[in-house]
Simulated scan of single mutants.
Amino acid sequence: MRKGKLTFVMYLIAVMVITCFPRVGYAEGDTLFTLSKSAENALPDQALEVTVNGNNLKGLYAYEAVITFDPDVVELVKAESKLEGFFLPPKVDNGKMTIAFTKVGKKAGEQGRSALSTIAFKGKAQGNANIKLLSVKALDPSLTATVHSYGTAFDDLAGYEWANTEIEALASSGIIKGTSATTFSPGDNITRADFICLLVRALYLHVEVDGNFNDVEQSDYYYKEVGVARKLGIAQGTSDSLFEPRLSISRQDMMVVAARAMKIAGKMLDESVSDLSNFSDSSEVAAYAAGPLSQLAKEGIIQGYNGLIKPNDTAIRAEAAVIIHRLLNK
């Protein structure tokens, strides 16, 4: 790299370190950074790969990401950029890693969705590696910086480590909310209306609402989202005129509406798939749900519990967060 380019790169990195314009609240179409993992749990000497993704990017020119992991469970092997430019090798200190990247020269920033980098780990022990995205400092081509922080103050996530990363990422971006300032209530059932709200917000689905189900009032906080889902054919109700928004949603119904929403959002699924034989309780899946569940299973969006899909169980808030997070990373 020529001296002039190197100077520019170091200047950008310095800007990332010292510049901070915090991002406050949720706005429709906000940028969201997420992690997708080849596995949640590590095994000794086995590879575990993590991808840093940017969703709804608006001119990303450079970034600095801070990622944490359990150093007793995994060790870093290498990190590589998926974008063309200068990638700063990871700096690691006791389970906290910082990676940085910048484009070089007069280049347009990244738009839309993009895989930004991959990080390879090797297992040291069996267990949850607790790999989490702590923050991303993003710069646009004018070197304006925005900080995206993904830590939350929820203090009731013990026992739901399998969903912590997803809950924290979605809560910090405003897509999902806690039940109070410090609680998320991950084990509580999620209603039909609340899951529809999550889908519509997360996938940025828009259409003019010109009607709704008879049991959804204009004063209801979910009126717009349910109306959007009804018009797009995502929410079809329990009858021609009723949606029963306050009922808890079953796991199979959650997955059916998720599959419909993905197609509306242009995230195509393999409609030829219809095999659920990997799940020992597949016979309990309703006929209308078999196709969508098979499609989501093939994509890894639903993975089941010890070989069970539990289609008729009510979905809980932690499960909803994981499903929405996986949809965003499809």
Rank of each mutant, 00 (worst) to 15 (best):
V256M: 10
G178F: 10
A297G: 11
S38E: 00
L139K: 04
L116H: 05
A47E: 08
Y61L: 07
K310M: 09
M97R: 06
G187F: 07
R317A: 04
D210M: 08
N329E: 04
E28H: 03
L35C: 04
E80G: 02
F69K: 01
K231T: 15
G291A: 13
G174Y: 01
S219M: 09
I176C: 03
A202R: 00
G112E: 02
T118M: 04
N329S: 10
A297E: 12
G112W: 03
K107W: 04
T179E: 08
E28T: 01
S283L: 02
A79E: 06
F87C: 11
L48D: 02
K263T: 12
I234D: 10
V256E: 11
G178S: 07
I176Y: 02
M1Y: 15
V66E: 09
N312T: 11
S117Q: 15
E80F: 01
S142G: 07
A39S: 13
A171K: 01
E110L: 06
N212Y: 02
T68R: 00
K124G: 06
V322R: 06
N189M: 07
I13N: 07
K137C: 03
G151S: 09
G300A: 03
K82D: 03
G211S: 14
T31V: 02
V50S: 05
A315L: 11
F69S: 04
V226C: 12
G112L: 00
K91D: 12
V256W: 10
V285M: 08
V200E: 01
M16G: 13
D194Y: 10
M268G: 03
T238Q: 11
G4T: 08
A193T: 00
Y222D: 06
A290M: 09
L232P: 13
A39V: 14
V92E: 13
A100Q: 12
H325L: 01
G54L: 06
E166T: 00
H148W: 02
N212R: 11
T7E: 15
S117H: 03
V77S: 15
M262D: 01
T34I: 05
G109H: 10
A315C: 11
I196N: 00
D215P: 13
L60T: 08
Y204K: 07
L57Q: 02
K137P: 03
R192Q: 11
Y288C: 06
S272Q: 15
N55R: 08
L6P: 09
D281F: 10
E208N: 13
G237A: 12
T179F: 03
L328C: 04
